[in-house]
Amino acid sequence: MNKEYEVVIIGGGPAGLSAGLYTSRARLSSLLIERGLVGGQIVNAELVENYPGFPEGISGLELTQLMHQQATKYGLETLLAETTGIELKEGQKVVKTTEANFIAKAVIIAGGSERAKLGIPGEKEFTGKGVSYCATCDAAFFKGEPIAVVGGGDAAITEARHLTRFASKVIVIHRRHQLRTSRILQEKAFAEPKIEFLWNTIVEEIKGEEVVQQLSLRNVITGEKFTLDVAGIFMSIGFKPNTAYLKGVLPLDAAGYITTNEKMGTEIPGIFAAGDIRYNSAQQAVTAAGDGVTAAIYAEIFIR
């Protein structure tokens, strides 16, 4: 027997937790399924300074623990498992996980995204040997050494600034000629003497003996090829939505994102999507939370 819930929420980041708060308070039986740690990507942020209501900032872990506590207080149930599929059977939605299957009247997909890989030679071989996807985790292994950060968004610049505490020099390699970050972050990065920029540049190969030693680079405007000696390379080139298990269930765009209407509805009635997993999401904790709430409200209308 598959257990039944009125709402099943996939993903325990800001979007899923906010959806769960609202569906629980609407007195809909609600299950949240999370494959990692409840909290989502934002647990990697040491200090979140732009979530309204916390003028001194708050750590991402603490912020989402509070969200979880609040939703649980109103009856949200949490299961630690990975969702592996959604099946539509006679008007019912069956959510499959590594632990059990569940039947839901409405499903809110809030699985967010994860770090994209560059897919260049050397990247896989040197992962853990100088190639890193988590600056807060690995910065301390590169004391006094030159390191590269690939990317030009908020996450890349935040990480470059964090790395200056350990590295002798941080070289930001970006394929465009300007950053895609908030002005306040740009000003801070440009003022930091340890950070240098390589504009219009892409990494073609990562080389070394046992550990990373050198990058092969190319300027995309002039075509000039050159090398850079570094001890580490931190990847911050954007994100890939967690939608692999949804192929064939929902239409996804070329990059794998889910398109929704203004009610967070997808093409299948009763299946909603919220947060970073949506096409054109603003990729912020507060907008993800807002999406989750919108989805919850329209899920309630759909069910009742």
Partner: peptide
Amino acid sequence: WAPWCRPCLM
């Protein structure tokens, strides 16, 4: 692991 590493705590 190390205490500052969030994925380690996860």
